[in-house]
C-alpha cells in the first residue's frame, strides 16, 4: 500500500467517530421525518373522515394527497443535511488546524514523513471528498427506504407516489447534491473538489505567513474565483453571447482545471518551501 493510500485511510479514521455520528443522526432524523409527517397527515385524515365525517374525495380535494415532497420540506429531513454540510465545511478547516494546535505536534510527524508533502495534502482533500460522497451515497440509499416507509404507512388512495428522480428534482437542495446525469454529477463535484483545494490553498497561505497569509489567502481566493468565472465575464461584458453554451461549458472546464491545478501547484510550493510548524 503506498503512503498516500495509508494517509487517506489514516485521515478517514481520525474523523470516523464524528462521521458515524453524522450518519446516525441523518438516518434517525430522516426516518423520524417520514414517520412524523406521515403520522400527522394520517391524523388529519382520521380527524376529517372519522370525526368530521368528510368523504375521502373531499379530504383529498381540500388537503391534497400526501407525497414525498411533504417529507423533504420537513426540518427533520433538511436539518441533518444542513448539519452534515456545516460540519464538513468546518472540518475542512479543522482537518489542518487540529495538527498545529493542541498539546501534541502531529504536524511535525506529517511533515517529516518520507513521502512528498503533497501526499499529506491530497490525502486530507481526498478524505473530505470521500466524506461528502459517503453522505451523498447514504442519501441515495435512504430515499427508497424512506419512500417504502411512507408507502407502508399511508394508504395508496391518500398518497401521490414519486419516482426517486422526481423526489430529487422536486427538492432543489437535493438537486444540487444528487444531479440526475453523470455529466452534471461530475460538474457539481468537480466544482466542489476545486473549492476544497482552493480553501486548502488559502489555509496554506495562512499557515506559511500567518496574519499576512490571511490577506494573501483572500487575495488568492478572489483570483481563483475570477479565473474560474472568466469565460462568464467575457461572455457577459465583452463578447455579448458570443459563445454557445457548450463552448462556455468547455471554457469553464478549462478554467476550473486551471484553478485546481494552479492551487495544487501553489500548495505544493508552500508546503515544501514555506511551511512552518
Amino acid at each position: 500500500m503506498n503512503r498516500y493510500v495509508k494517509l487517506v485511510n489514516f485521515e478517514l479514521g481520525r474523523f470516523m467517530k464524528v462521521y458515524i455520528a453524522l450518519i446516525g443522526i441523518t438516518i434517525i432524523s430522516q426516518l423520524a421525518a417520514v414517520i412524523v409527517v406521515s403520522k400527522s397527515y394520517l391524523n388529519n385524515a382520521n380527524q376529517a373522515m372519522n370525526v368530521d365525517h368528510m368523504a375521502i374525495e373531499t379530504f383529498i380535494e381540500q388537503y391534497g394527497r400526501m407525497s414525498f415532497n411533504d417529507v423533504t420540506n420537513s426540518i427533520f429531513f433538511i436539518g441533518p443535511i444542513a448539519l452534515c454540510i456545516v460540519t464538513l465545511l468546518i472540518y475542512s478547516l479543522f482537518i489542518w488546524y487540529r495538527d498545529w494546535f493542541g498539546k501534541n505536534t502531529f504536524i511535525y510527524r506529517l511533515l517529516m514523513l518520507p513521502t512528498a508533502r503533497l501526499n499529506v495534502y491530497l490525502a486530507k482533500a481526498s478524505a473530505i471528498f470521500l466524506f461528502v460522497l459517503g453522505l451523498v451515497g447514504l442519501q441515495i440509499l435512504l430515499l427508497p427506504l424512506e419512500r417504502m416507509i411512507l408507502q407502508w404507512m399511508v394508504p395508496i388512495d391518500l398518497r401521490w407516489d414519486l419516482s426517486i428522480n422526481e423526489m430529487i428534482r422536486n427538492f432543489d437542495r437535493l438537486g444540487i447534491m444528487l444531479p440526475y446525469s453523470i455529466a452534471e454529477f461530475a460538474i457539481h463535484y468537480g466544482i466542489g473538489f476545486m473549492a476544497v483545494i482552493v480553501l486548502f490553498t488559502i489555509i496554506m497561505f495562512e499557515r506559511c505567513y500567518r496574519l499576512k497569509g490571511i490577506l494573501l489567502g483572500i487575495g488568492y481566493g478572489a483570483l481563483a474565483l475570477i479565473v474560474f468565472f472568466l469565460p462568464v465575464f467575457v461572455q457577459e461584458f465583452m463578447l455579448y453571447n458570443y459563445f454557445y453554451p457548450e463552448e462556455l461549458f468547455m471554457l469553464m472546464l478549462v478554467t476550473g482545471l486551471l484553478v485546481t491545478a494552479g492551487s495544487i501547484w501553489m500548495s505544493n510550493h508552500l508546503l515544501t518551501r514555506k511551511i512552518r510548524v
Binding site: 501534541n104 505536534t105 510527524r109 518520507p114
Partner: peptide, 16 residues
C-alpha cells in the same frame, strides 16, 4: 522527502 529516512527529529513535545 527521502532524507527523512536518514535524519529524524525528536521535538520537545510528542509527535503523535
Amino acid at each position: 522527502k527521502k532524507s527523512y529516512e536518514k535524519i529524524t527529529f525528536i521535538p520537545d513535545a510528542i509527535t503523535m
